[in-house]
């Protein structure tokens, strides 16, 4: 049984089709990344899963229960949030959690304290939410989701506004929950964060699913990645790159070289540099396979293969 099973989900607003016949499935213990540029329909899709928006067509099953009557029983054991988490600013973080726990019928001070501790807000639970930063609200949103001991988590940009430490903690928490069998659907623009936690990906563009598969499949299908390269002899490195099919190299504006090549060609190129006694002083990944794949799938003019390496890196990074 899937934790999420959606078939043919469609939502139209006036003349716009925000979500167009989307099929989606998330298995227990799976962390699925939901990717797409702004306006791809990710948030509307999440809102439909939560029952906040009624689909014009299609069906949703959460944990085996049809979501015909959204909310209530249909969302039992489902946690998460859509867009930035929102709370009552005149209540403290703990009081907000207590109120939400009350809505679930199980107000427990111990559970509230435990959830606050788990997201690193144990010292600030008594403060009014009005004084919380974006990152703290994000943490409180996670605490509110954890309070339900969910078997399915639907998270929209969970690391948005978090500092690097907070991002790492959320990443670790997601992996920990997945290991416990919790199914997680994670929507994010921060592709780098998704790469660390997701087992599978669904990529959306203009309301449609344009790619769906595992992380391994995605990396295999990814076009060239972009790297920054500094060598002892850049001229020689450029010549060697020109002799290697599938490797594109050019001078970077800030010095050094920019490379565009598929991951499986990297080793051969670096060995060739070594054979030619060209020392590699620096090799940095500028745009990962996931980032270039995301760009290739979602950009209006996905000319990944035609872009100069540095331009590719800049464009991909800007798009993602």
């Amino acid at each position: 049984m899937y934790a999420v099973r959606a078939g043919g989900l469609t939502k139209r607003f006036a003349t716009t089709t925000a979500v167009d016949g989307v099929d989606l499935a998330v298995a227990p213990g799976e962390v699925r990344g939901l990717l797409g540029p702004n306006g791809a329909g990710k948030t509307t899709l999440l809102r439909m899963l939560f029952g906040l928006v009624a689909p014009d067509a299609g069906s949703v099953e959460l944990l085996g229960r049809p979501a015909a009557d959204p909310g209530g029983e249909a969302l039992r054991d489902v946690g998460g949030f859509v867009e930035e988490p929102a709370f009552y600013p005149y209540l403290s973080g703990a009081a907000n959690l207590s109120l939400l726990a009350r809505l679930d019928g199980g107000p427990s001070a111990a559970a509230v304290t435990e959830a606050l501790t788990r997201v690193g807000l144990d010292g600030r639970g008594g403060d009014r939410v009005a004084g919380y930063s974006t990152g703290m609200k994000q943490r409180l949103g996670l605490a509110a989701a954890l309070l339900r001991s969910p078997r399915l988590l639907l998270l929209d940009e969970p690391t948005s506004g978090l500092d690097p430490g907070g991002t790492q903690a959320v990443t670790a928490l997601v992996r920990e929950l997945a290991a416990d069998g919790v199914a997680i659907l994670l929507s994010s623009h921060q592709i780098g964060e998704l790469e660390r936690v997701c087992d599978t990906y669904t990529v959306m563009r203009r309301g449609r699913v344009v790619w769906d598969g595992s992380a391994t499949e995605l990396i295999c299908a990814a076009p060239a990645s972009a790297y920054a390269l500094a060598t002892s002899d850049d001229e020689a490195a450029l010549r060697i790159a020109a002799e290697h099919p599938g490797v594109r190299a050019g001078r970077a504006r800030r010095g050094g070289l920019a490379l565009a090549l598929e991951a499986d060609r990297l080793d051969g190129f670096v060995l060739a540099l070594g054979d030619a006694r060209v020392a590699v002083r620096r090799l940095d990944l500028l745009a990962s396979p996931l980032e270039t794949m995301f760009f290739a799938l979602t950009a209006d003019d996905a000319a990944v293969d035609r872009l100069e390496p540095e331009e590719l890196a800049e464009t991909v990074l800007a798009a993602s």
Partner: peptide, 18 residues
């Protein structure tokens, strides 16, 4: 699609909606 766990974990014993 990978599936790290074969089945959905059991529901919590907390009285949600009790």
């Amino acid at each position: 699609m990978s599936s790290a766990a074969p089945s959905i974990p059991a529901a919590a014993t907390r009285p949600i909606g009790g």
